[in-house]
Design a protein around this nucleic acid. Structure first.
Lengths: 253, 253
DNA sequence: AAAATAGTGTCTGTAAGACAATATAAC
DNA sequence: GTTATATTGTCTTACAGACACTATTTT
């Protein structure tokens, strides 16, 4: 037998254990002060060969006039993912889109008023869907690969500061997207239903911020099993039209 | 110009916006009900060529007698990471170990008493450090690759049920570790300061739960730049002693 | 010497990068 | 026909897997 109860004696009873003991004994939990919990959603799309995010201008202090991520407080009876879906529906009219938890930001000072944790989510939107919305702002990513770090938001020629730590949250979202692009089918969420291999390549180049080899990219994608030929081709091109593909949700193996 | 303010009119004012408006105007946030926020830490190590986790037997309802992850409530003035570090220090006497945020679990029913969010962290401990502690339990992972899913905890021959959704949290931790093992130096955190190539290989095989090719593994590791030769060798082996290496923290490039 | 693992050298297959050649649309 | 991109084919290079062989320690 390896489990033990004697190890507890090794360390003096700490705050943690006292606090736990109170909780476990069924004492009133509410006497502990609790932080507010928000869900913020990074809605990403492609806009003119750039990554762009849905951002909302704040109309009250703090950070009045700055751009911020759409978010909400979590209700007591809804899951975090449900709260994120609610944000998407209420603030962008979007339903059934790719949605994934990103990271939880909990610096005590991230909100100047009171302690607010933010559970961040990433949503990915195809450009044809995003085009019907507005409030998308192109991003400028001042780092390479998966170095990570905050991201700048462009408004025409200038960059605009963001509210709270939302530039860090955006940076984390881009980092996550870059990291997953090569070995998951996540990229297809940023394309319309039917697309050409060149569109898929441009998407990868935009997200990774580096050129990719056309030949091997093509071979790799066709061999991946993620693509399904539609049998149709582009129209109205000024050159030979490319074949249109669709994302093939792989069946369970 | 692409940014817009008219899009807001597209959707009726929703709960989200009303709630936000109240918040942004500086109204008393405290009138919204808030969930409790806990931090739970998955402390992983290697034990007899198995992954093992530090687990504590609960001595009160609910789930009295079940094993659970060490955790605590987040204090109002500490960051999430600080809370996780505090758990490590108080419950295991560990400081300065690898610690990374994993995922936030927020199902409304995950705690039968009241709404408790859990921000989960993963900590990795070298086996020589873990050997001085106790309460480590070997894990049985009933899925392959990065499929994911809950994990079973062994106690001798039997499996023991866990409290709350802690089996899911453990599963997520193993999935994360497997996913990062191949392309980050995360694995070295599970080895003593000096180790042989075979130990490193066994570690990979244990975490990935599949054999790895010795020749190419060896070549890949030596070429990675992550290893630094110590010039010393094993002692007291019943065979040719292997060279000892140490993890070389790569300097910034 | 026997046993056991460490470590080296070589061959083969696969996949990526590079480049050339051909195909097909609009104009 | 010209222009521009699509698509196919081939060559080279890098690396993983497989296998054979040599090295070094304890017993």
């Amino acid at each position: 037998m390896r489990s033990a109860s004697k190890a507890a004696a090794k360390f003096p009873k700490s705050d943690v254990e006292i606090q736990d003991a109170a909780f476990l004994a069924g004492y009133d939990v509410s006497r502990f002060e609790r932080p507010s919990v928000a869900v913020d959603v990074v809605v990403l799309t492609l806009l003119d060969d750039r990554l762009a995010a849905l951002l909302i201008e704040r109309d009250a202090a703090p950070f009045r006039g700055r751009l911020s991520l759409p978010g909400t407080f979590v209700r007591m009876d809804e899951s975090l993912e449900a709260a994120a879906a609610r944000v998407l529906l209420d603030k962008a009219g979007l339903a059934k889109v790719f949605l994934e938890q990103l990271y939880t930001f909990g610096s005590p000072a991230r909100d100047p008023r009171t302690r607010v944790l933010s559970v961040a989510y990433v949503a990915l939107i195809a450009p044809d869907v995003a085009a019907e919305l507005e409030r998308f702002h192109p991003l400028e990513i001042p780092w390479e690969g998966e170095t990570g770090g905050p991201v700048r938001v462009l408004d025409g020629e200038r960059t605009r500061p963001l509210a709270f730590d939302h530039d860090d949250i955006l940076g984390m979202a881009v980092k996550r997207l870059r990291g997953k692009l090569d070995y998951t089918p996540i990229g297809f969420q940023l394309l319309p239903t039917e697309f050409t291999l060149l569109m898929l390549q441009r998407l990868h180049e935009t997200v990774l911020a580096r050129p990719v080899n056309k030949d091997s990219f093509r071979r790799r994608m066709l061999a991946s099993g993620d693509l399904e030929s539609t049998g149709t081709r582009e129209t109205d091109t000024a050159h030979r039209p490319a074949e249109l593909y669709r994302f093939a949700r792989r069946s369970a193996v």
